[in-house]
Simulated scan of single mutants.
Amino acid sequence: MKNILNYGDGPKAIYEVLKQQIIAGELKAGEELKIMPLAKEMDISIVPLREAIRMLAAESLVELRPRRSPIIAKMNERELIEMNQIRGALEPIVLADAVPRHTEATIAACQTLIEQDERSTDLWEKVELNRQFHLSLLEPSIMKRSLAIIGDQYDGIARITQFRVVDHGGLIGKHNFEHEAILDAVRVANVEKAVVLMTRHIDHATVRARHELSQAVEAGPAAGGSAAQATKG
């Protein structure tokens, strides 16, 4: 992990830096966070670092262990299913509210994200573009609390996605045709069709990810970090 500059001196700023490194896979599941070496590397004091780690533990990103160094928490099938259940419950509702509020400009922005995804060969960029597309599709909604909850799910999904997409590149472009279909329904203000397609899209992502995580369990520890594979949607 490279030294971090301009992160400020508060626990929240340190938390944000570490959170992004966990999401991006720079800090791997099961990796120990040794407090003293990490504080020295980041050029910070131990007190705000410990507080930042407690904040990460509260979000199940870090596992605290008595008399031992905390570790980066592992993700499992149950957590993935829960995240997609939240998405499956909320995204169609928020999308239904967003569809009649879309404009030519917001639809064009969504289309641009699809096109950027299709052109991109950077796997982590594709993960980010997937997130941006979903949130941009929902952004016109006035249901801001629900939008915030949905946005939170993508941090966890990004962690899982990196094993399959970044380590293996196995799903490049496979979700784009579903994104195009949803956007086409939004473009003609067909709320019912957009909601059905979004629900199906999230269901497909859940099925694919469960399959990948099940394979990872069967592969066992010998397969290494890349065994914990998953998908994006």
Score class of each variant (00 low, 15 high):
Ala209Trp: 14
Leu138Trp: 01
Val195Ala: 09
Tyr154Glu: 05
Gln132Ser: 14
Ile157Lys: 03
Asp203Ile: 05
Met198Gln: 02
Phe133Arg: 00
Asn176Lys: 08
Leu147Gly: 02
Glu178Met: 09
Gln162Gly: 01
Ile202His: 01
Gln153Ser: 14
Glu192Cys: 10
His168Leu: 09
Phe133Ser: 02
Tyr154Ala: 05
Glu218Pro: 00
Leu171Trp: 08
Phe163Ala: 06
Gly169Val: 08
His204Lys: 13
Arg187Ala: 05
Ser136Gln: 07
Val188Met: 07
Ser146Leu: 05
Lys174Cys: 06
Phe163Ile: 13
Met198Cys: 14
Glu218Gln: 09
His168Cys: 14
Arg200Val: 01
Glu212Cys: 09
Val188Thr: 10
Leu137Met: 08
Glu178Asn: 03
His201Asp: 08
Lys174Asp: 07
Asp155Glu: 15
Gly170Asp: 12
Ser136Met: 14
His204Leu: 03
Ala219Gly: 09
Gln215His: 15
Ser146Val: 04
Glu178Leu: 05
Ile150Gln: 06
Lys193Thr: 11
Ser214Thr: 14
Ile157Trp: 03
Val217Thr: 12
Arg159Val: 14
His201Gly: 05
Gln215Asn: 11
Gly170Glu: 11
Leu197Phe: 11
Leu183Tyr: 04
Leu171Gly: 06
Val186Lys: 03
Phe177Trp: 10
Gly173Lys: 09
Leu197Thr: 02
Ala185Ser: 10
Ile160Thr: 05
Val191Asn: 01
Leu135Thr: 04
His201Ile: 05
Glu178Gln: 01
Ile182Pro: 07
Arg208Met: 04
Lys193His: 12
Ala148Phe: 15
Ala219Asn: 05
Glu180Trp: 08
Ala194Trp: 00
Lys193Met: 10
Val186Cys: 10
His201Lys: 07
Asp184Lys: 12
Gly169Asp: 11
Leu147Lys: 08
Asp203Leu: 05
Lys193Glu: 15
Arg164Trp: 05
Asn190Trp: 10
Met198Asn: 02
Ala189Gln: 15
Val217Gly: 06
Pro140Thr: 15
Leu138Asp: 00
Val207Ser: 05
Arg145Asp: 14
His201Trp: 12
Val165Ser: 04
Glu178Tyr: 03
Val195Phe: 13
Ser214Ile: 15
Ile172Ala: 06
Leu197Asn: 00
Asp167Ala: 13
Gly169Arg: 08
Lys144His: 03
Val207Ala: 09
Phe177Val: 13
Arg164Val: 10
Leu213Lys: 03
Phe133Asn: 00
Lys193Asp: 13
Thr206Asp: 15
Val165Met: 04
Asn190His: 10
Val191Arg: 03
Gly173Cys: 04
His175Asn: 08
Thr161Met: 14
His168Lys: 15
Asp152Asn: 15
Leu147Trp: 08
Ile149Ser: 06
Met143Gln: 15
Gly156Lys: 04
Glu178His: 07
Thr199Cys: 09
Arg187Thr: 14
His179Trp: 01
Ser146Thr: 09
Glu139His: 00
Lys174Trp: 08
